[in-house]
Design a protein around this nucleic acid. Structure first.
Lengths: 199, 199, 199, 199
DNA sequence: AATGAATGAGAATTCATTCAT
DNA sequence: CATGAATGAATTCTCATTCAT
């Protein structure tokens, strides 16, 4: 039986789901709040009860999608890392490939994320997806070296994620000036160079 | 006495200049085409003679500003490199610092560029700013190694530029999750690792 | 005290009334939606709550005016037919004269109807003006013969109405190639020939 | 070798042809004078040398297409009438069928004509298509009786043509309230009744 | 908390027309 | 005759936001 609080959340979730569908199918610009509330089955006023405006809504959606994309990719990688006893470099490479594969598969989500992949590193995202925290700690561990302590490794992880997110958005969506197939070897080579030094 | 052809270009340039000023002072969203043409001193219809819409105009402006930012930074770096006999790693680091310094100084331009710094690598930008081509070739030369031939070095340059552009936009504008001062050492460390391997 | 539902209808009616006045006084082309809402005393957005665009509005107005014109003419004819015991042919002729007289009298309405007089035979018009149904049935009865059963008589009624509406629009408004006074005998002669065969 | 006068006509004809294609492919509303002159390969100013505005142009096109439709149908009918010795009623019926067939076949032309089929009876059309005059005279002859002398027969011809044009536009384009297949028997029955009385 | 009719400022874009060349 | 760059008034339609119920 849903409590009052859960019910409230329900309306908010309906709005988020409806908006996500519309933002993906059409685009953010071509979606009016009117469309969102109609599809969500709530009244116009209700929208303003939960969101400041369309961009507040968009931010929340991007945060959710990037967090989902990141955590799912991490889970897949870590499962395989354990089974196959992958080394740190291999793990990072595998994770990168996994993220890129998902972005290629679902170009609409990639277009929605635009270049905000690192939104999943925001405090809000980590709070709402506690799993993020465990993955970040795990990956930070992989990047740590005596010359690169915890906080620095965490920053490096963030920069790498942002780089991959930005570069891949352009490469997947516009293929200009390079398409994703051309850039994957370059990205791998960068990752290897950064991590080999560890040795 | 301006010929008809020059006059045509003139109107287009007036529009670009006016729009740049308004986009920087207010923002793209807060600037109506009406404001642009008023400031440019041309009729509304004239705008649509030269630009498809506001975003076509914006793309052209971003291309120009990023190309200007990149070429100016390159010029400064190369002048100093010659004078002080800097090594390749130092040159790349110096160039990065120069770009970041300019983005920090002019946050409005940084906000306008958003995360499209690599727009200056587009064929159109290179065509309109031939200087871009010489700088790209020069920098590609710095990145080249036996294991990393010309085309690959060029791609790496592009990925680095995109990374710096994206990471710095967030760090300078929102300071979240890391502010630019925190990230500069990380970026330097990444650059050094990537280039040290060359040795 | 008007209920909410009545109020809704009221705004729609205000818009219809205002538009009709403007469409008649000026013309459809010379009337902006802005003018309509100003005269109706409602907000611009309210217009789009009830009508898709200016032509949706025009269709509804034409439907109403033709239905009014037709039902009023029928009522007058039937009142007189009962009083003076008119035969079927005389009734149809009288009705035709009545319709033509009204179109001549109010050239502006005729211009608004353009050549869409048969709009009053649309299902929507019949639904909104139930009286239409009774008149159509009555007139169909007048046209019926053993050789021309109900459905066929109804179709003939429609064709006749459309013919009169179209021919008279041109004759009344432009008088070219024939003016209405020249054509009335011809129309009568056609009607008589069509109905004499009944005997 | 084209004379100057013919050359002038050439530009005018290019405009007419271009406009016809655009009016048919898109619609009159969706065609700008700009589109017309671009397709015609003439300058914007040239348009205003030959036409007052878009509606002047449209009128000329409708006049041409209706005159063409009417004269071609007449020619076909008269050829067959001679070969097969058709009676007057059969000739009128055959002509009607021919016109309807052409309107059904080319719904775009029908939409362009809208309900202005009788435009081909205008003095201007007859002047530009002298063949119209001979057909009108021929058909008037078919309709003449002692009780229906020349001028009256000509008016009846006009009314019939207008009726067929109007009724068929709706029936072919919107099929409401009756579609063309339902109405053809009704139209035939009307024609037969009107002409049988002749006997 | 939820509703949804009403708002009206505001923006984009079109397009017929002109006129200097 | 012919051109086509420039004009700018005019118009449509959107849409975020409010507020009485």
């Amino acid at each position: 039986m849903p409590t009052a609080a859960e019910n409230k959340h329900l309306k908010q979730l309906h709005i988020l789901d409806a908006a996500t569908r519309l933002f993906l199918d059409r685009s953010v610009t071509d979606t009016a709040i009117d469309d969102v509330v109609k599809l969500a089955g709530v009244a116009k006023g209700t929208f303003y009860l939960y969101f400041r405006d369309k961009y507040d809504l968009l931010d929340q959606i991007v945060m959710r999608r990037t967090a989902t994309l990141f955590t799912e990719s991490c889970r897949v990688m870590r499962a395989r890392a354990e089974k196959e006893q992958l080394g740190p470099v291999e793990q990072i490479e595998y994770l990168t490939d996994e993220i890129i594969a998902r972005m290629r598969e679902d170009r609409k989500v990639t277009a929605l994320i635009d270049k905000r992949f690192s939104a999943c590193f925001s405090p809000k995202a980590i709070e709402e997806y506690p799993e993020m925290q465990t993955h970040i700690e795990y990956l930070t561990g992989l990047l740590e070296t005596p010359a690169c302590p915890g906080e620095e490794a965490r920053r490096m992880l963030y920069v790498l994620a942002d780089m991959i997110g930005c570069v891949c958005c352009d490469a997947i969506l516009s293929a200009r000036p390079y398409d994703i197939d051309e850039l994957i070897p370059t990205i791998h080579s960068i990752l290897r160079k950064l991590l080999e030094v560890r040795v």
